[in-house]
Design a protein around this nucleic acid. Structure first.
Lengths: 119, 119
DNA sequence: TTCAATACTTACTCTTTGGTAAGTGTCCAG
DNA sequence: CTGGACACTTACCAAAGAGTAAGTATTGAA
């Protein structure tokens, strides 16, 4: 697990995009940063219910390496680190929008199947 | 494992959609079925370079259960089974299009970084 | 009688992913 | 001198995902 040369050659665009978003919390991180513009590490941790510090930082690091987010360190005590989306991160978020809409519809369908209280 | 009650409650639409596409070959299966309209099991296996029969059938079954694809069995010998996209599968494919485009651009960027032979 | 074709199954293993819990370093308040 | 804030880091473990290889069932062709 070096630093570069991750991510094999891709079969297609979806492949390349999925590689970058796959990870239990990545799309949520994208969403959170898109909503707030800038978030500190602790804010993200509290914002993503259930995430562990280990996974949060791991995902943040990978997303930084993939050019999706920007990490700004303020040398204060106690330390302060701000995360925000890069242009690539923003555009990825946009590209995910239709998928999110599809997923929401799916949720509605599933809910309607379970509880057919139409009117 | 079980048959129903998979897929926990979702945080958002992306979550629900990712749940349904995550799996090494699923987006490729979607793409293949979208291109050809109908594909037999063996055609899919040969079309997706590197997929094992176990994973292919496992993904196909899950996608069928998720309402993305339709499975048509012809009782012949040797057996013949046709797979095709349902309406939900088609719309998912559409929803994935911007993501695919984003991924293709990312591939181009990566290639350009590795080999900066611009003109 | 054996083999090929087709679409799976099954058992076993290995790898990847995610989780828990404890520790690090700095500075200041008490 | 201790403890709290904050942003990590590390070691260890469990579960999920994916791969390999062999087996099943049917029928016709050689």
């Amino acid at each position: 697990m070096g630093s570069n040369a991750r991510r094999g050659p891709y079969v297609c665009g979806i492949d390349a995009a999925m590689d970058v978003v796959s990870g239990k919390w990545k799309s949520l991180i994208l969403w959170e940063l898109n909503n707030y513009g800038t978030r500190r590490f602790g804010e993200l941790r509290r914002g993503l219910a259930g995430v562990s510090e280990k996974m949060l930082i791991q995902h943040l690091r990978e997303m930084e390496e993939d050019g999706l987010i920007h990490r700004e360190v303020y040398r204060e005590v106690p330390p302060r680190v701000d995360y925000s989306l890069t242009e690539h991160g923003s555009s990825l978020n946009e590209a995910l929008r239709p998928l999110g809409a599809w997923g929401s519809q799916r949720c509605e369908r599933l809910a309607a199947e379970r509880d057919p209280t139409g009117e």
